[in-house]
Design a protein around this nucleic acid. Structure first.
Lengths: 247, 247
DNA sequence: AAATTTGCTTAGAGCTATTAAGGAAACATA
DNA sequence: TATGTTTCCTTAATAGCTCTAAGCAAATTT
């Protein structure tokens, strides 16, 4: 595992790429997304402007790569929470993955905001492979757990025949894209939960709820309680960590 | 009401301001938010660059003014839906306001996206009076109706003593900022509904659900059905308009 | 040792926001 | 009616941005 697979050049290049990502992130966190310019990043790294084009073909591509990294980090955090207590009941693992998701979002609001709000523009290009791939992995974590739950102890689902035709078709199509791992009715429940969880988080991080709340932790827990009921699994309080006090 | 209150100059200036707003909106819709530059707007209007600074002190201020206009338009649409059938049951009026909100968002995705995703940056300045004022008016519409509902036929609320202390305090504070028009418990129900409605809409418009859905209308209606139950009011199907077919 | 690839440089075109200075027209006033 | 002020717009200029082009120098390959 030495000179053949990874040349010295490759290692240097890799190090530079990582320095770029770190620098972008520092600028984003410290001064907001508008401060993440190619020139500023290069300046911070002590090299001048156009040099960065040897690593990324455009500003958009750089942003896409960094965003993909954020998705990956978030997904890894959630996977760690999933695997930390691999022997725990499926319900507990699901809850702890949800909490890990929020914990990461709260700890990294600028990054999470970027993940969510950056694709205002691109409803078009779908082959944004790097970024799209990472987003898929992120979505996959909760989907996998839900599939596992569905197989171990199926949750209640609505009657497919009772749903509007349009919804039925969409759910069937989605069920197919996940290779039938959930039938359409179960996919519907999963998507409903996903929307509530992710939607709440996005509103929190994008400051849409500041007019009423200063700390959404109890609201999030209530949401989890609600979703637990929907999935007919036992809600259990979050483990007490530093910084959280029982009331 | 002629020459004294509104001079010729004032009218011309007002017309120019409106042309600016129209131009900004056209650029936003046609080419995305990145295309809304001071230079581009001026160019479109046949005047060159710095002239716009006689109307707005900065790019940010221009964006803020236009965003406020979007909020106002959305709020007016909702108010119209509220007042269209002033004699209808409160529940029906609530539902039709919610539907009017989504209809506007769907009809004007770029504008709605701007409303929602633009304040990634400014969690600081709260005296963004123009824009903030308009946002308040928007939020007010559903709050007003909920207050009316609460007074006419109170919906079930949780026991305040059973809520976490932190949440209790935040709800009490919010109840105070709306001058006690809803007690904390009722405010909690209102906010929960608000989060689900607005959150779903934001995710839809910002394309966070494209991976599963192509048309969220049935999902939105299901959400409304759910919220109707929470508020113990009768859910009624949306009126059939052109373009919507019963299945 | 020679040739090629790679990482960087500076120069420059064409955007952008914003400030400064000045001209021309409309308005207000003496 | 003449004079002064206010208002709208212009061009010029600064400083930043993205991105292309041309070229030097060092590292790597042949």
């Amino acid at each position: 595992m030495s000179a053949h697979t990874t040349s010295r050049r490759d290692r240097l290049r890799q190090a530079t790429v990582e320095e770029i990502h770190v620098t972008v992130r520092r600028l984003l966190v410290a001064q907001g997304s508008a401060a993440v310019t190619i020139n500023a990043v290069a300046r911070e790294m002590g090299m001048s402007g156009p040099a960065l084009y040897h690593y990324y073909a455009s500003h958009d591509e750089l942003v896409g790569a960094v965003t993909a990294g954020f998705f990956r980090e978030l997904a890894e955090t959630m996977e760690q929470a999933r695997d930390a207590h691999a022997d725990a009941p499926i319900g507990d693992r699901l809850l702890s993955v949800c909490r890990a998701m929020r914990a990461w979002a709260i700890a990294h609001p600028a990054e999470f905001g970027w993940i969510f709000a950056s694709p205002i523009a691109p409803p078009n290009r779908r082959q944004d492979s790097v970024r799209h791939q990472a987003a898929l992995r992120f979505e996959q974590v909760l989907l996998d757990l839900t599939v596992e739950l569905w197989q171990a102890q199926p949750f209640p689902v609505p009657d497919l025949a009772g749903l509007p035709a349009s919804l039925r078709e969409q759910l069937t199509a989605y069920s197919a894209t996940i290779e039938g791992r959930l039938p359409p009715e179960a996919a519907h429940v999963f998507l409903t939960c996903w929307i509530r969880l992710y939607g709440l988080l996005c509103m929190e991080v994008l400051h849409q709820l500041d007019f009423a709340y200063t700390d959404l932790e109890p609201v999030f827990e209530e949401c989890l309680r609600d979703l637990s009921a929907k999935l007919s699994l036992d809600y259990s309080e979050p483990p007490l960590t530093e910084g959280r006090r029982p009331s």
